[in-house]
Write a protein that binds this DNA or RNA. Sequence first.
DNA 1: AGCATTCTCAACCTTTCGGTTAAGCTTGCC
DNA 2: GGCAAGCTTAACCGAAAGGTTGAGAATGCT
Lengths: 126, 126
Amino acid sequence: MAPSLDTIFAALSDPTRRAILSMLLEDDMAVTDVAEPFEMSLAAISKHLVILANAGLITQEKRGRVKWCKLEPDALRGASVWMQGFGQFEAVNLDAFERFLAVELSDPRPDREEDQDRDAPPKEEE
Amino acid sequence: MAPSLDTIFAALSDPTRRAILSMLLEDDMAVTDVAEPFEMSLAAISKHLVILANAGLITQEKRGRVKWCKLEPDALRGASVWMQGFGQFEAVNLDAFERFLAVELSDPRPDREEDQDRDAPPKEEE
DNA sequence: AGCATTCTCAACCTTTCGGTTAAGCTTGCC
DNA sequence: GGCAAGCTTAACCGAAAGGTTGAGAATGCT
């Protein structure tokens, strides 16, 4: 069964876990390597990874004695969709909403001056 | 200071709070009215509202003895931008989405004189 | 075989979360 | 003034979150 929004948002609410996701954006990693930059025990990181996996945000595959962690960005889609409409698409015209989405997603979108990446930024751009 | 991603995602991780946000999408509401459909005490709902307000997701304004709760969709922008960094799904332009919602929801709504500052600049709190 | 590496599990601890009830503070109305 | 309506605060409670340490299970290396 697909992870609930509860699970996904809760997983995202911890800065360590968001940092882990950011790291995995660059490459798949072994558990030990994920844990290396953090000042906490390996067991703690292992628990965080379980939480991320339960939320569907990563998958883990064991090869030999190494367990590889892989980002699953699709898991964010449900949360993203909810946020975009606060879950109340039925309250509005769905056709119009879909047309709106089509336009939004197809455009290169010039009007993007976003601030705010005080936390671990998903992409480094310095 | 702007609420952290920690605070925002944590606020979104509770189903009661997400339901409250959905209700507020339709209209501003008094605290008692927010609490009405839930099977928990008014005090519990009041706490949830504090959490949502701390996350910047709602604002509360007291007029007389009634405290009105108002959705602040802008607060989701930070979270949306962070999630957008993971690619795969394109984050939607929230401004445009709001404009879309405004058009879709505008007509059949009487007595909404408190709706004036939808486009007001973001206020600081704390 | 023996040992190191990699990771999880179990037990434990402290803090936070989400709820309760009871009391109290404003505010509006008669 | 007196009372009801509308919320918040305080004290409390059980459960869950997030960390620790220590032991243990696989696996790979020599």
